[in-house]
């Protein structure tokens, strides 16, 4: 195994707004080891999503990377032109967003939009595409594959829609999957199913997953390593247990204190001791 699947170093990003230029990321670094799940945690506005969007080169209007490096399997991504980046997106890096029901394009069927993604990257014939789409849908745990493929997004439940989104992101077998708050906007029971699905896919396809969340519970349960972000900086990172059990940075401690993690652990300790 050579180096991390995804490495971000000293990444700084600015956004030009109406009231001047604001720095949103300041020297962010993180490493996603191959076949692992890395959590990026922090409160709203800490720069988590901005980090993810810099990686795939989709900063919001006015956004600009001012310094740093992003390497995918050793290949530098910053400085690639628009077409090269476009080819990487969806093929080498898959990305999943929150609110699956709005992420799917509402006016065409699930199958048509998945086929559009396939056409953008792979040279498959019609039958090959149909087979691939059904195989991926089955992989993400869709039973009634044909019916779902022919459905329009508004006909799907939130959970099914997110499965379709994940299947779309994984159509071209990317090595890295970035999941930006993948369970926000879903029912609690569905949230769990989706997280279990991502964990399953990670081991099944030996994916490297970067999961972005504000929920320390998700980090504790699924991640191998974690970075804590605050104010556009990574304040602490490392192996998940180490960070959560003996946080070094004051902000991490406050974050843990504010979460229900401690109660969770106490409960577990209590039940284990009994």
């Amino acid at each position: 195994m050579t180096g991390p699947a995804l490495a971000v170093r000293e990444l700084s990003v600015e956004i030009a707004g109406r009231d001047g230029v604001a720095s949103v990321l300041d020297g962010v670094g993180l490493a996603l080891a191959r076949g692992r799940m890395h959590g990026l945690v922090g409160e709203t506005g800490s720069g988590k999503s901005m980090t993810a969007r810099s990686v795939i080169g989709l900063l919001p209007p006015g956004g600009r990377v001012t310094a740093g490096s992003v390497q995918l399997g050793g290949r530098e991504l910053l400085g690639l032109d628009a077409d090269e980046l476009r080819e990487l997106r969806g093929a080498a890096i898959g990305m999943v967003f929150q609110n699956p029901r709005t992420a799917l394009y509402p006016l065409i069927t699930v199958e048509t939009q998945m086929a559009n993604v396939l056409k953008a990257h792979l040279n498959l014939d019609r039958r090959g595409r149909a087979a691939r789409i059904r195989e991926r849908l089955r992989l993400v745990g869709v039973d009634d594959v044909d019916r779902i493929a022919r459905s329009y997004p508004h006909e799907l439940s939130g959970g099914l829609a997110q499965r379709a989104v994940i299947a779309t992101a994984l159509l071209c077998d990317p090595e890295v999957l970035i999941a930006d708050e993948p369970t926000t906007g879903l029912d609690a029971t569905i949230q769990r199913q989706i997280l279990e699905l991502i964990a399953f896919l990670q081991s099944e396809l030996s994916l490297s997953v970067l999961i972005i969340t504000h929920d320390l519970g998700i980090i504790a349960q699924y991640c191998d390593t974690v970075s804590v972000m605050h104010d556009g900086r990574v304040v602490e990172d490392g192996e998940m247990r180490r960070v959560l059990l003996s946080p070094q940075h004051d902000y991490t401690r406050r974050l843990i204190a504010a979460s229900d993690l401690r109660e969770l652990r106490n409960e577990r300790a209590a039940s284990a001791g009994r």
């Binding site: 997106r89 969806g90 990305m95 992420a103 989104v165 159509l171």
Partner: peptide, 21 residues
Amino acid sequence: TSDSILFGRACGLSNRKLWTY
């Protein structure tokens, strides 16, 4: 600026396709 166009971009759809979307 909708989520579905952002997701389409993240899936590497061509600008032409996104334009038709």
